[in-house]
Computed example of a mutant assay.
Amino acid sequence: MGRSFPIGILFSATGSYGTVGRTMRNGALMACEEINADANAGVRLEPVVIDPRSELAAYAPAVEAMLDQGIRHVVGCYTSSSRKDVIPIFEKRDALLWYPAHYEGFESSANVVYTGTAPNHHMSPLVDYLVSRFGCRAFCVGSNYIWGWESNRVLREDITHRGGAVLAERYVAVGETDFTAIIEAIIEAQPDFVFNALIGRSAYAFFRQFRAACRSRGIDQKRRFPIASCNLSEPELQEIGGDAVDGHLSSSVYFASIDTPTNRAFVAAYNRMFPEGPVISVEAEAAYIAVKFLATALGEAGTVAMGPVKAAVQGRSLDAPQGRVTIDPETMHTYLTPRIGVSRLDAHFDIIVEAEAPVRPDPYLVRASSPLEATARRPMLRVV
């Protein structure tokens, strides 16, 4: 048995975005169990779990409590607000946050390892697809915080550069569920597509209400007003539920429907471990990856000190459920494989666009080429 290391697991398993938070916690704990059961792992992880309950004010005290216990590595946070709230604490106390969520980019901290998607992994390929397939007139809806603001800004700049336009942007508080006025504005504006940057319960309510409003007017929402997201995953499809769940576009790096032996085994193991759900998500896979990288780095470094652990993980690769992933030593973000899926009535995704190889992270969008163009002369299409 190897040396034991305490690590923090910090995800909101309850509250407005608790469904996604539970999948992230599950993914992290699944990785811990696999590592602890592996006689060749060389380390044993002791997870300390805290649930901030989707309350922004609860994250900083939770991090302080973990660091006060001697923990130097925390896998956690879903929202960008929570991440930005705790980064100064990690910087002040020489600790490392392993952040496993898609995010808006334009950030680099010496105290964060990013195993979720950078904007060139999800925003850039999605805009390519939307403009080529539907047009370049967008209506943006988002939760009123950093993820919504910045995601819509990136889309707006890209669309404008292509000669298109964002017809309107509307924001609501996290947890808001009344979208009557916004839906009326969308139908009046007649965009080519709707870009969704809502999270949690707000997103689920919007999808249901928009589908119902279109149906009452005799509009086929899926065809006339397609909704595209960079943060829509399988457990959220289940939350949307009913006949409002299909036909939605999601730009991601992982879907449970990836048909490889590694991913099939991953999904089966997750379902055995967490039969009560929520079902697996891209965020769960990113949290799983983060813990796997962390354990390997701790074993090589032989210490929890941030410097040796960062040095041990830089440039390291892992055969993950989504495919090969690698920590970029320059940005401490991760090489990931962009994909676009369309949701089905059974709350799964058909993958319709997939890059041919993992793509280097570009958190500041300084490279001009599309990530799909960068890895293939044209996107690999798999239409079901």
Rank of each mutant, 00 (worst) to 15 (best):
E276H: 12
L167G: 02
E33M: 13
Y129L: 11
T262Y: 11
T23L: 03
F274W: 03
R208C: 04
S109W: 02
V383I: 15
H161M: 10
C140R: 10
P361T: 00
R153Q: 15
Y78A: 02
P278T: 11
T303I: 04
R316C: 06
D243R: 04
N40K: 15
W147A: 03
L198C: 02
A39R: 15
L97A: 09
Y254G: 00
P308V: 01
T326I: 12
W147N: 10
V325Q: 04
P329D: 12
Y78V: 05
T334A: 06
P125Y: 06
G200L: 05
C140M: 14
P52S: 11
E34M: 01
Y17V: 06
S317A: 14
P61H: 06
G27M: 01
A203T: 02
V384P: 15
I71A: 05
A213W: 06
I183R: 08
S369Y: 06
R53W: 09
G27A: 12
A13E: 13
L29G: 01
A305S: 09
M24T: 10
R25V: 05
R162E: 03
S369C: 09
A347D: 06
R217I: 03
H161R: 13
S251Y: 01
H102K: 09
A290H: 02
F195M: 15
R25M: 11
P119M: 09
V63W: 01
R272G: 00
F266H: 08
A189R: 01
Y129A: 09
G76W: 03
